[in-house]
Amino acid sequence: MVSFWHTILALVWKDVLLEIRTKDIMISILSFAILSLLILNFALKPSPKTASVIAPGILWVAFTFAGVLGLARTFALEKDQGNLVGLMLAPVSGEALYLGKMLANLMFMLIAELALLPIFAVLFNMSPFQPAFLLVVFVATVGFAAVGTLFSAIGVNTRSRDIMLPVLFLPLVVPVIISAVVASSIALDRGPWVDMVKWIQLMLVFDILAVVLSALAFDQVLRE
């Protein structure tokens, strides 16, 4: 069990070191998300009244598509120089490999999302730094990273990997995105907690299923 967690920590630390050196994932997520927020803000010109209606949707569109870009990079980096084969040669379980990669992806996505929130706050005149909204962001991002890590691994071994990831992945995370948009809207409006709970519960169920099933399938997905 100790070795299991050591493996996960080693994988996460390796990805953190690589990201500090290359900044590949953060740059791709942040640049796309900032551009999306800016363009949609100028195109829709939200008034104080309409902002609370359209802003959560805009935010999650930016998070989703920028997240896909970041997820595509994680295994593309592993594919270079046969590093993915190097990982598969290690005597560790598929579950440990999956959790290591998934936790690193989750961490990068959460950091990028936190960095985007001040820009979102300025552009849409909203206050996103409140516990209920941050909880929604966290729970939705876990589901996103859980499924995304698996499909990023599936996509990396296919010829058209840049297309495969969004085509396979986006339909599957629709329940999370819809739940996140509705729950975010309630949280940003400081609506009643009971209205938000059912959406958070839905996302939590999705997260648990996504993590367990992806971890179990990961070894089969990696090995031909």
């Binding site: 080693a10 390796k14 070191l17 050196r21 290359t22 120089q81 590093n83 990982l87 560790v92």
Partner: peptide, 28 residues
């Protein structure tokens, strides 16, 4: 088993020792 192939299986943005440390941790 130890495998050497025509691909280096090394992370280009890590140093040699960082690559070896990572590999060593994966093999405990």
């Amino acid at each position: 088993i130890g495998v050497v192939s025509h691909q280096s299986q090394l992370y280009q943005d890590l140093s040699a020792i960082e690559n070896l440390r990572f590999h060593g941790k994966m093999f405990s």
